[in-house]
Write a protein that binds this DNA or RNA. Structure first.
Lengths: 224, 224
DNA sequence: AAATGAGATAATGTATACAGTATAATTACT
DNA sequence: AGTAATTATACTGTATACATTATCTCATTT
Protein backbone atom coordinates (compact mmCIF):
# COMPACT_ATOMS: atom_id res chain seq x y z
CA UNK A 1 0.00 0.00 0.00
CA UNK A 2 2.81 2.31 0.75
CA UNK A 3 4.62 1.26 -2.38
CA UNK A 4 1.86 2.39 -4.66
CA UNK A 5 2.34 6.06 -3.93
CA UNK A 6 6.03 5.90 -3.30
CA UNK A 7 6.98 8.16 -6.13
CA UNK A 8 4.28 10.59 -5.19
CA UNK A 9 5.37 10.75 -1.62
CA UNK A 10 8.91 11.52 -2.54
CA UNK A 11 7.73 14.56 -4.44
CA UNK A 12 5.21 15.57 -1.85
CA UNK A 13 7.54 17.48 0.40
CA UNK A 14 8.51 20.98 -0.60
CA UNK A 15 10.56 23.14 1.72
CA UNK A 16 8.76 26.31 2.69
CA UNK A 17 11.38 28.37 0.95
CA UNK A 18 10.37 26.73 -2.31
CA UNK A 19 6.70 27.30 -1.64
CA UNK A 20 7.39 30.95 -0.95
CA UNK A 21 9.66 31.13 -3.97
CA UNK A 22 7.00 29.72 -6.27
CA UNK A 23 4.35 31.98 -4.83
CA UNK A 24 6.39 35.14 -5.23
CA UNK A 25 7.70 34.12 -8.62
CA UNK A 26 4.21 33.60 -9.90
CA UNK A 27 3.07 36.92 -8.44
CA UNK A 28 5.90 38.72 -10.19
CA UNK A 29 5.43 37.00 -13.54
CA UNK A 30 1.69 37.62 -13.59
CA UNK A 31 2.14 41.22 -12.58
CA UNK A 32 0.55 40.99 -9.16
CA UNK A 33 3.81 42.35 -7.87
CA UNK A 34 4.91 45.19 -10.08
CA UNK A 35 8.47 46.29 -10.91
CA UNK A 36 9.90 48.58 -8.28
CA UNK A 37 7.65 47.27 -5.55
CA UNK A 38 9.44 46.74 -2.26
CA UNK A 39 9.43 43.27 -0.82
CA UNK A 40 9.76 43.39 2.93
CA UNK A 41 10.61 40.20 4.73
CA UNK A 42 8.37 40.66 7.74
CA UNK A 43 5.42 41.75 5.72
CA UNK A 44 5.71 38.82 3.32
CA UNK A 45 6.27 36.41 6.17
CA UNK A 46 3.10 37.57 7.89
CA UNK A 47 1.08 37.50 4.71
CA UNK A 48 2.25 33.98 3.84
CA UNK A 49 2.06 32.69 7.38
CA UNK A 50 5.69 31.67 7.68
CA UNK A 51 8.74 33.07 9.39
CA UNK A 52 11.30 35.39 7.87
CA UNK A 53 13.82 32.63 7.27
CA UNK A 54 12.17 30.92 4.29
CA UNK A 55 11.16 34.32 2.93
CA UNK A 56 14.75 35.51 2.99
CA UNK A 57 15.90 32.39 1.20
CA UNK A 58 13.17 32.68 -1.39
CA UNK A 59 14.11 36.29 -2.07
CA UNK A 60 17.67 35.28 -2.66
CA UNK A 61 16.55 32.59 -5.06
CA UNK A 62 14.49 35.16 -6.93
CA UNK A 63 17.51 37.41 -7.09
CA UNK A 64 19.38 34.57 -8.77
CA UNK A 65 16.71 34.49 -11.43
CA UNK A 66 17.02 38.22 -11.86
CA UNK A 67 13.43 38.77 -10.89
CA UNK A 68 14.31 40.62 -7.71
CA UNK A 69 17.00 43.09 -6.80
CA UNK A 70 18.69 42.91 -3.41
CA UNK A 71 20.43 45.89 -1.91
CA UNK A 72 22.37 45.12 1.26
CA UNK A 73 20.79 46.60 4.34
CA UNK A 74 18.03 48.16 2.30
CA UNK A 75 16.00 45.25 1.13
CA UNK A 76 14.52 43.66 -1.94
CA UNK A 77 12.42 45.00 -4.71
CA UNK A 78 10.88 43.59 -7.84
CA UNK A 79 13.41 44.18 -10.57
CA UNK A 80 12.44 46.57 -13.27
CA UNK A 81 13.98 45.84 -16.63
CA UNK A 82 15.01 48.59 -18.94
CA UNK A 83 14.59 48.36 -22.67
CA UNK A 84 18.30 47.82 -22.87
CA UNK A 85 18.09 44.85 -20.54
CA UNK A 86 15.47 43.30 -22.77
CA UNK A 87 17.58 43.87 -25.85
CA UNK A 88 20.57 42.37 -24.09
CA UNK A 89 18.68 39.29 -23.03
CA UNK A 90 17.28 38.75 -26.49
CA UNK A 91 20.75 39.14 -27.95
CA UNK A 92 22.02 36.30 -25.80
CA UNK A 93 18.93 34.27 -26.34
CA UNK A 94 19.36 34.58 -30.08
CA UNK A 95 22.82 33.05 -29.90
CA UNK A 96 21.58 30.24 -27.68
CA UNK A 97 18.55 29.57 -29.83
CA UNK A 98 20.80 29.29 -32.87
CA UNK A 99 23.09 26.96 -31.03
CA UNK A 100 20.26 24.80 -29.77
CA UNK A 101 18.60 24.58 -33.14
CA UNK A 102 21.76 23.69 -34.98
CA UNK A 103 22.48 20.94 -32.48
CA UNK A 104 18.93 19.70 -32.78
CA UNK A 105 19.40 19.45 -36.54
CA UNK A 106 22.19 16.99 -35.92
CA UNK A 107 21.04 15.15 -32.85
CA UNK A 108 17.27 15.07 -32.62
CA UNK A 109 15.86 11.59 -32.14
CA UNK A 110 13.05 10.32 -34.29
CA UNK A 111 10.61 10.23 -31.40
CA UNK A 112 11.24 13.83 -30.52
CA UNK A 113 10.86 14.83 -34.14
CA UNK A 114 7.45 13.18 -34.20
CA UNK A 115 6.59 14.86 -30.94
CA UNK A 116 7.62 18.33 -32.06
CA UNK A 117 5.65 17.93 -35.26
CA UNK A 118 2.60 17.09 -33.21
CA UNK A 119 3.22 20.13 -31.04
CA UNK A 120 3.44 22.29 -34.11
CA UNK A 121 0.15 20.96 -35.44
CA UNK A 122 -1.51 21.69 -32.14
CA UNK A 123 0.19 25.06 -32.00
CA UNK A 124 -1.34 26.05 -35.31
CA UNK A 125 -4.69 24.69 -34.23
CA UNK A 126 -4.55 26.76 -31.07
CA UNK A 127 -3.87 29.76 -33.25
CA UNK A 128 -6.90 28.99 -35.36
CA UNK A 129 -8.95 28.77 -32.20
CA UNK A 130 -7.31 31.89 -30.80
CA UNK A 131 -6.60 30.13 -27.50
CA UNK A 132 -3.92 32.38 -26.09
CA UNK A 133 -3.00 30.31 -23.04
CA UNK A 134 -2.54 27.28 -25.22
CA UNK A 135 -0.60 29.15 -27.86
CA UNK A 136 1.93 30.28 -25.29
CA UNK A 137 2.21 26.84 -23.73
CA UNK A 138 2.72 25.10 -27.06
CA UNK A 139 5.27 27.64 -28.20
CA UNK A 140 7.17 26.87 -25.03
CA UNK A 141 6.80 23.13 -25.64
CA UNK A 142 8.16 23.57 -29.14
CA UNK A 143 11.32 25.24 -27.92
CA UNK A 144 11.67 22.88 -24.97
CA UNK A 145 11.75 19.91 -27.31
CA UNK A 146 14.55 21.53 -29.24
CA UNK A 147 16.42 22.13 -26.00
CA UNK A 148 15.83 18.56 -24.90
CA UNK A 149 17.36 17.22 -28.06
CA UNK A 150 20.56 19.16 -27.46
CA UNK A 151 21.16 16.94 -24.42
CA UNK A 152 22.84 19.94 -22.81
CA UNK A 153 21.58 20.79 -19.34
CA UNK A 154 23.58 23.97 -19.02
CA UNK A 155 22.23 25.34 -22.25
CA UNK A 156 18.72 24.38 -21.22
CA UNK A 157 19.05 25.96 -17.82
CA UNK A 158 20.42 29.24 -19.11
CA UNK A 159 17.90 29.46 -21.91
CA UNK A 160 14.95 28.81 -19.65
CA UNK A 161 16.21 31.36 -17.18
CA UNK A 162 16.33 33.99 -19.90
CA UNK A 163 12.84 33.02 -20.95
CA UNK A 164 11.59 33.50 -17.41
CA UNK A 165 13.06 36.96 -17.28
CA UNK A 166 11.24 37.88 -20.46
CA UNK A 167 7.98 36.27 -19.46
CA UNK A 168 6.37 39.50 -18.34
CA UNK A 169 7.07 41.10 -21.69
CA UNK A 170 6.30 38.08 -23.82
CA UNK A 171 2.56 38.26 -23.47
CA UNK A 172 2.37 41.35 -25.59
CA UNK A 173 4.09 39.46 -28.35
CA UNK A 174 1.80 36.54 -28.90
CA UNK A 175 -1.23 38.59 -28.04
CA UNK A 176 -0.77 40.61 -31.17
CA UNK A 177 -2.35 38.79 -34.07
CA UNK A 178 -0.10 40.30 -36.66
CA UNK A 179 2.95 38.46 -35.36
CA UNK A 180 1.41 35.03 -35.62
CA UNK A 181 1.93 34.26 -39.31
CA UNK A 182 5.63 35.03 -39.04
CA UNK A 183 6.03 32.84 -35.97
CA UNK A 184 4.35 29.95 -37.77
CA UNK A 185 6.65 30.43 -40.74
CA UNK A 186 9.68 30.38 -38.47
CA UNK A 187 8.56 27.25 -36.69
CA UNK A 188 8.01 25.51 -39.98
CA UNK A 189 11.41 26.63 -41.19
CA UNK A 190 13.04 25.23 -38.08
CA UNK A 191 11.21 21.93 -38.50
CA UNK A 192 12.31 21.70 -42.10
CA UNK A 193 15.93 22.31 -41.14
CA UNK A 194 15.74 19.63 -38.47
CA UNK A 195 14.24 17.13 -40.89
CA UNK A 196 16.95 17.86 -43.43
CA UNK A 197 19.65 17.76 -40.75
CA UNK A 198 20.75 21.15 -42.03
CA UNK A 199 22.41 22.76 -39.01
CA UNK A 200 23.38 25.98 -40.77
CA UNK A 201 19.89 26.52 -42.07
CA UNK A 202 18.49 25.80 -38.59
CA UNK A 203 20.78 28.28 -36.94
CA UNK A 204 19.86 30.91 -39.48
CA UNK A 205 16.11 30.49 -39.16
CA UNK A 206 16.36 30.44 -35.37
CA UNK A 207 18.37 33.60 -35.43
CA UNK A 208 15.83 35.28 -37.63
CA UNK A 209 13.08 34.08 -35.34
CA UNK A 210 14.59 35.76 -32.31
CA UNK A 211 15.43 38.87 -34.28
CA UNK A 212 11.82 39.18 -35.31
CA UNK A 213 10.77 38.51 -31.76
CA UNK A 214 13.05 41.28 -30.55
CA UNK A 215 11.61 43.83 -32.93
CA UNK A 216 8.14 42.90 -31.89
CA UNK A 217 8.68 43.06 -28.17
CA UNK A 218 10.45 46.39 -28.48
CA UNK A 219 7.67 47.84 -30.55
CA UNK A 220 5.04 46.71 -28.07
CA UNK A 221 7.02 48.15 -25.17
CA UNK A 222 7.49 51.48 -26.85
CA UNK A 223 3.86 51.76 -27.82
CA UNK A 224 2.35 51.16 -24.45
CA UNK B 1 37.65 64.14 8.11
CA UNK B 2 34.83 61.79 7.64
CA UNK B 3 34.42 62.81 4.05
CA UNK B 4 37.92 61.79 3.06
CA UNK B 5 37.32 58.10 3.49
CA UNK B 6 33.69 58.12 2.53
CA UNK B 7 34.13 56.01 -0.55
CA UNK B 8 36.28 53.60 1.34
CA UNK B 9 33.80 53.34 4.13
CA UNK B 10 31.00 52.57 1.73
CA UNK B 11 32.96 49.59 0.42
CA UNK B 12 34.21 48.60 3.79
CA UNK B 13 31.10 46.79 4.85
CA UNK B 14 30.54 43.31 3.56
CA UNK B 15 27.74 41.18 4.88
CA UNK B 16 29.04 38.05 6.54
CA UNK B 17 27.25 35.92 3.98
CA UNK B 18 29.49 37.49 1.32
CA UNK B 19 32.61 36.95 3.37
CA UNK B 20 31.67 33.31 3.83
CA UNK B 21 30.74 33.05 0.17
CA UNK B 22 34.09 34.41 -0.97
CA UNK B 23 35.96 32.19 1.43
CA UNK B 24 34.20 29.01 0.36
CA UNK B 25 34.28 29.94 -3.32
CA UNK B 26 38.00 30.45 -3.16
CA UNK B 27 38.48 27.18 -1.31
CA UNK B 28 36.53 25.33 -3.96
CA UNK B 29 38.24 26.95 -6.92
CA UNK B 30 41.70 26.34 -5.53
CA UNK B 31 40.86 22.77 -4.68
CA UNK B 32 41.05 23.07 -0.91
CA UNK B 33 37.52 21.75 -0.94
CA UNK B 34 37.31 18.86 -3.32
CA UNK B 35 34.34 17.73 -5.42
CA UNK B 36 31.99 15.50 -3.50
CA UNK B 37 33.04 16.87 -0.13
CA UNK B 38 30.15 17.48 2.21
CA UNK B 39 29.64 21.01 3.46
CA UNK B 40 27.89 20.97 6.81
CA UNK B 41 26.46 24.19 8.08
CA UNK B 42 27.35 23.81 11.72
CA UNK B 43 30.83 22.68 11.01
CA UNK B 44 31.53 25.55 8.62
CA UNK B 45 29.94 28.05 10.99
CA UNK B 46 32.20 26.90 13.81
CA UNK B 47 35.28 26.91 11.66
CA UNK B 48 34.58 30.39 10.32
CA UNK B 49 33.41 31.77 13.63
CA UNK B 50 29.95 32.82 12.48
CA UNK B 51 26.46 31.47 12.93
CA UNK B 52 24.67 29.11 10.61
CA UNK B 53 22.58 31.84 9.02
CA UNK B 54 25.26 33.48 6.86
CA UNK B 55 26.69 30.05 6.06
CA UNK B 56 23.33 28.87 4.77
CA UNK B 57 22.97 31.92 2.59
CA UNK B 58 26.49 31.57 1.26
CA UNK B 59 25.86 27.93 0.37
CA UNK B 60 22.78 28.94 -1.57
CA UNK B 61 24.78 31.55 -3.43
CA UNK B 62 27.37 28.94 -4.30
CA UNK B 63 24.63 26.67 -5.56
CA UNK B 64 23.56 29.45 -7.89
CA UNK B 65 27.03 29.51 -9.32
CA UNK B 66 26.89 25.76 -9.73
CA UNK B 67 29.83 25.23 -7.48
CA UNK B 68 27.80 23.47 -4.83
CA UNK B 69 24.94 21.03 -4.95
CA UNK B 70 22.08 21.31 -2.48
CA UNK B 71 19.85 18.38 -1.71
CA UNK B 72 16.86 19.22 0.49
CA UNK B 73 17.15 17.81 3.96
CA UNK B 74 20.43 16.20 3.14
CA UNK B 75 22.79 19.07 2.79
CA UNK B 76 25.36 20.59 0.50
CA UNK B 77 28.36 19.17 -1.23
CA UNK B 78 30.98 20.50 -3.58
CA UNK B 79 29.69 19.84 -7.05
CA UNK B 80 31.58 17.39 -9.12
CA UNK B 81 31.44 18.02 -12.83
CA UNK B 82 31.37 15.22 -15.27
CA UNK B 83 33.16 15.32 -18.58
CA UNK B 84 29.80 15.85 -20.18
CA UNK B 85 29.13 18.90 -18.01
CA UNK B 86 32.40 20.39 -19.14
CA UNK B 87 31.61 19.72 -22.78
CA UNK B 88 28.18 21.26 -22.30
CA UNK B 89 29.55 24.38 -20.69
CA UNK B 90 32.15 24.82 -23.37
CA UNK B 91 29.50 24.39 -26.03
CA UNK B 92 27.52 27.26 -24.59
CA UNK B 93 30.60 29.29 -23.97
CA UNK B 94 31.60 28.89 -27.60
CA UNK B 95 28.35 30.40 -28.78
CA UNK B 96 28.67 33.28 -26.34
CA UNK B 97 32.28 33.89 -27.21
CA UNK B 98 31.36 34.10 -30.88
CA UNK B 99 28.54 36.47 -30.09
CA UNK B 100 30.70 38.66 -27.91
CA UNK B 101 33.51 38.81 -30.42
CA UNK B 102 31.27 39.64 -33.34
CA UNK B 103 29.68 42.46 -31.35
CA UNK B 104 33.10 43.69 -30.34
CA UNK B 105 34.07 43.83 -34.00
CA UNK B 106 31.26 46.30 -34.54
CA UNK B 107 31.17 48.22 -31.31
CA UNK B 108 34.59 48.32 -29.69
CA UNK B 109 35.75 51.82 -28.80
CA UNK B 110 39.19 53.06 -29.78
CA UNK B 111 40.35 53.22 -26.18
CA UNK B 112 39.40 49.64 -25.51
CA UNK B 113 41.11 48.54 -28.70
CA UNK B 114 44.31 50.22 -27.53
CA UNK B 115 43.86 48.63 -24.14
CA UNK B 116 43.31 45.13 -25.47
CA UNK B 117 46.33 45.43 -27.72
CA UNK B 118 48.40 46.36 -24.70
CA UNK B 119 46.99 43.36 -22.84
CA UNK B 120 47.93 41.10 -25.70
CA UNK B 121 51.50 42.43 -25.74
CA UNK B 122 51.79 41.79 -22.03
CA UNK B 123 50.15 38.42 -22.46
CA UNK B 124 52.79 37.35 -24.92
CA UNK B 125 55.50 38.76 -22.71
CA UNK B 126 54.15 36.77 -19.76
CA UNK B 127 54.34 33.70 -21.96
CA UNK B 128 57.94 34.42 -22.80
CA UNK B 129 58.66 34.75 -19.10
CA UNK B 130 56.60 31.65 -18.35
CA UNK B 131 54.71 33.50 -15.60
CA UNK B 132 51.67 31.28 -15.23
CA UNK B 133 49.69 33.43 -12.79
CA UNK B 134 50.09 36.40 -15.07
CA UNK B 135 49.27 34.44 -18.20
CA UNK B 136 45.97 33.38 -16.75
CA UNK B 137 45.14 36.86 -15.49
CA UNK B 138 45.93 38.50 -18.81
CA UNK B 139 43.98 35.94 -20.77
CA UNK B 140 41.03 36.79 -18.56
CA UNK B 141 41.63 40.51 -19.09
CA UNK B 142 41.68 39.96 -22.83
CA UNK B 143 38.28 38.32 -22.84
CA UNK B 144 36.86 40.76 -20.30
CA UNK B 145 37.69 43.67 -22.57
CA UNK B 146 35.80 41.98 -25.38
CA UNK B 147 32.87 41.46 -23.06
CA UNK B 148 33.00 45.06 -21.91
CA UNK B 149 32.79 46.32 -25.45
CA UNK B 150 29.59 44.37 -26.04
CA UNK B 151 27.90 46.67 -23.52
CA UNK B 152 25.73 43.70 -22.57
CA UNK B 153 25.59 42.97 -18.85
CA UNK B 154 23.60 39.78 -19.23
CA UNK B 155 26.05 38.32 -21.68
CA UNK B 156 28.93 39.33 -19.42
CA UNK B 157 27.33 37.84 -16.35
CA UNK B 158 26.54 34.52 -17.98
CA UNK B 159 29.93 34.24 -19.62
CA UNK B 160 31.81 34.96 -16.43
CA UNK B 161 29.68 32.48 -14.56
CA UNK B 162 30.59 29.78 -17.04
CA UNK B 163 34.22 30.72 -16.72
CA UNK B 164 34.03 30.34 -12.95
CA UNK B 165 32.60 26.88 -13.31
CA UNK B 166 35.48 25.89 -15.54
CA UNK B 167 38.10 27.55 -13.40
CA UNK B 168 39.16 24.35 -11.69
CA UNK B 169 39.80 22.67 -15.02
CA UNK B 170 41.32 25.62 -16.78
CA UNK B 171 44.65 25.45 -15.07
CA UNK B 172 45.60 22.34 -16.90
CA UNK B 173 45.05 24.11 -20.16
CA UNK B 174 47.41 27.04 -19.86
CA UNK B 175 49.87 25.00 -17.89
CA UNK B 176 50.59 22.90 -20.91
CA UNK B 177 53.17 24.64 -23.05
CA UNK B 178 52.03 23.06 -26.24
CA UNK B 179 48.73 24.93 -26.22
CA UNK B 180 50.29 28.37 -25.98
CA UNK B 181 51.20 29.04 -29.63
CA UNK B 182 47.66 28.27 -30.74
CA UNK B 183 46.15 30.54 -28.12
CA UNK B 184 48.39 33.37 -29.23
CA UNK B 185 47.39 32.82 -32.84
CA UNK B 186 43.73 32.91 -31.85
CA UNK B 187 44.13 36.09 -29.87
CA UNK B 188 45.87 37.75 -32.76
CA UNK B 189 43.18 36.59 -35.13
CA UNK B 190 40.51 38.06 -32.90
CA UNK B 191 42.36 41.34 -32.69
CA UNK B 192 42.69 41.47 -36.44
CA UNK B 193 38.98 40.89 -36.90
CA UNK B 194 38.17 43.65 -34.42
CA UNK B 195 40.48 46.08 -36.16
CA UNK B 196 38.91 45.27 -39.51
CA UNK B 197 35.40 45.40 -38.03
CA UNK B 198 34.86 41.99 -39.54
CA UNK B 199 32.18 40.45 -37.33
CA UNK B 200 31.91 37.19 -39.24
CA UNK B 201 35.63 36.62 -39.11
CA UNK B 202 35.63 37.45 -35.40
CA UNK B 203 32.87 35.00 -34.66
CA UNK B 204 34.67 32.31 -36.60
CA UNK B 205 38.02 32.75 -34.92
CA UNK B 206 36.38 32.92 -31.49
CA UNK B 207 34.54 29.73 -32.20
CA UNK B 208 37.71 28.01 -33.25
CA UNK B 209 39.39 29.28 -30.13
CA UNK B 210 36.84 27.68 -27.85
CA UNK B 211 36.77 24.52 -29.90
CA UNK B 212 40.51 24.18 -29.51
CA UNK B 213 40.16 24.96 -25.84
CA UNK B 214 37.56 22.22 -25.50
CA UNK B 215 39.77 19.60 -27.11
CA UNK B 216 42.61 20.58 -24.86
CA UNK B 217 40.73 20.51 -21.61
CA UNK B 218 39.20 17.16 -22.47
CA UNK B 219 42.53 15.67 -23.31
CA UNK B 220 44.04 16.88 -20.07
CA UNK B 221 41.12 15.51 -18.07
CA UNK B 222 41.29 12.13 -19.73
CA UNK B 223 45.02 11.85 -19.27
CA UNK B 224 45.16 12.51 -15.58
C1' DA C 1 26.65 -14.17 9.15
C1' DA C 2 23.53 -11.19 6.96
C1' DA C 3 19.59 -8.49 7.21
C1' DT C 4 16.19 -5.98 9.42
C1' DG C 5 14.57 -2.76 12.80
C1' DA C 6 14.79 0.29 16.84
C1' DG C 7 16.98 3.81 18.96
C1' DA C 8 20.44 7.43 19.23
C1' DT C 9 22.75 11.04 16.94
C1' DA C 10 23.50 14.66 13.97
C1' DA C 11 22.08 17.21 10.32
C1' DT C 12 18.79 20.47 7.96
C1' DG C 13 14.29 23.24 8.26
C1' DT C 14 12.01 26.84 10.55
C1' DA C 15 11.00 30.27 14.02
C1' DT C 16 12.29 33.81 16.96
C1' DA C 17 15.11 37.11 19.41
C1' DC C 18 18.49 40.56 19.47
C1' DA C 19 21.77 43.96 17.22
C1' DG C 20 22.81 47.38 14.03
C1' DT C 21 21.59 50.58 10.46
C1' DA C 22 18.82 53.30 7.31
C1' DT C 23 14.76 55.96 6.86
C1' DA C 24 11.11 58.75 8.55
C1' DA C 25 9.34 61.97 11.70
C1' DT C 26 9.79 65.41 14.88
C1' DT C 27 11.86 69.05 17.10
C1' DA C 28 14.95 72.88 17.51
C1' DC C 29 17.20 76.46 15.48
C1' DT C 30 18.18 79.98 12.06
C1' DA D 1 8.86 79.03 7.32
C1' DG D 2 12.61 76.36 6.01
C1' DT D 3 16.52 73.68 7.18
C1' DA D 4 19.37 71.00 10.10
C1' DA D 5 19.82 67.96 13.87
C1' DT D 6 18.01 64.48 16.71
C1' DT D 7 15.15 60.98 18.02
C1' DA D 8 12.06 57.20 16.88
C1' DT D 9 10.74 53.54 14.04
C1' DA D 10 11.15 49.92 10.96
C1' DC D 11 13.83 47.13 8.38
C1' DT D 12 17.76 44.01 7.48
C1' DG D 13 21.78 41.24 9.52
C1' DT D 14 23.03 37.76 12.60
C1' DA D 15 22.61 34.48 16.25
C1' DT D 16 20.28 31.00 18.57
C1' DA D 17 16.73 27.76 19.86
C1' DC D 18 13.50 24.36 18.65
C1' DA D 19 11.32 20.88 15.34
C1' DT D 20 11.77 17.52 12.07
C1' DT D 21 14.03 14.22 9.40
C1' DA D 22 17.92 11.54 7.71
C1' DT D 23 21.66 8.69 8.94
C1' DC D 24 24.35 5.76 11.71
C1' DT D 25 24.95 2.31 15.25
C1' DC D 26 23.84 -1.60 17.43
C1' DA D 27 21.00 -5.20 18.84
C1' DT D 28 17.95 -8.70 17.50
C1' DT D 29 16.26 -12.06 14.47
C1' DT D 30 16.38 -15.24 10.70
Amino acid sequence: MEETNFSIKSNEYLPLRDVVFNTLRDAILTGKLVPGERLMENQLADKLGVSRTPVREALRMLALENLVELVPRKGAQVLDMSEKDIINILEVRGALESLATSIACVKMEKEDLLEIKKVEVEFERAIAENDLERIIQLDEDFHDLILKSTDNDKLTQIYQNLRTQLYRYRMAHLKADSSIPAVVAHHRGILRAIENHDADEGAMVAHGHIKYHTEFILRSIRNK
